[in-house]
């Protein structure tokens, strides 16, 4: 692990590429979706060439999102099991968020907040895809009963909202945790960062190389 100058590889290039591809697609899906979410956001449809183009593109962007996210999720699946250390971490979550000094439990590669985010996105992207199919005019919507379409359109909006809030939290948490973004852009983090935030993972990584 410890390559020159004490950096640890956190995310290999394939994961980084996959993550940023999902991120770009997510932004496109969000901006195009918000245009239909509330009139206050309709101006965003101008970014996609107007209302009809936004309506045409959004569902296809969603399908790309589903595929790209599924690839990322299958890569990260194994790191997202909740452990006892995670539960201890959760008890200290408030102190951690307020930057109080805490003895960090021996958590692995991800903390429980990240694991919840993973589960939320997994569930919501699934719901967004299924409800998105039901309301997709003119290809699929006519195949479903009007009440199912009504329900799907509401569920799609709510799932979209939850997803966007989850991503706002994700972006902020990454920014707030100094050194984390480097892990996803350059792929490496400092040993000090790993030890501070993920002691269990740090120990595992140091064991492997010594």
């Amino acid at each position: 692990m410890n390559n020159k100058s004490g950096f640890i590889l956190r995310h290999p290039p394939q994961v980084r590429a996959n993550h940023w591809f999902v991120a770009i697609v997510f932004i496109l899906a969000t901006l195009s979706g918000l245009a239909f979410f509330h009139p206050a956001f309709f101006f965003l449809s101008n970014l996609f060439g107007g209302g009809p183009w936004t309506k045409i593109l959004h569902p296809f962007v969603g399908v790309v999102m589903l595929v790209a996210f599924s690839m990322l999720a299958s890569r990260e699946w194994k790191y997202n099991r909740v452990t006892d250390a995670d539960r201890q971490w959760q008890k200290k979550a408030m102190d951690i968020m307020l930057n109080h000094p805490v003895k960090m439990p021996d958590i692995g590669r991800y903390n429980i907040g990240q694991k919840y985010l993973f589960r939320t996105l997994l569930g919501m992207i699934g719901i967004l895809f299924l409800t998105g199919i039901v309301i997709w005019q003119p290809y699929f919507a006519p195949m479903f009963s009007i009440n199912l379409v009504r329900l799907a359109v509401v569920a799609h909006g709510i799932a979209g909202f939850i997803t966007i809030v989850a991503i706002i939290v994700h972006i902020y948490a990454a920014y707030w945790t100094r050194g984390a973004i480097r892990g996803m852009t350059r792929g490496t983090v400092t040993a000090a960062w790993a030890k501070h935030h993920y002691p269990g993972w740090y120990k595992e990584m140091s064991k492997g190389s010594k």
Partner: peptide, 25 residues
Amino acid sequence: MSYGLGVAVLTGIMHYVTVGPNEAE
């Protein structure tokens, strides 16, 4: 939900300016 999105962003900003970043020594 539209207000909710605004609140989420604002909460992040307020957290950062009051609590400060989470830095590893």
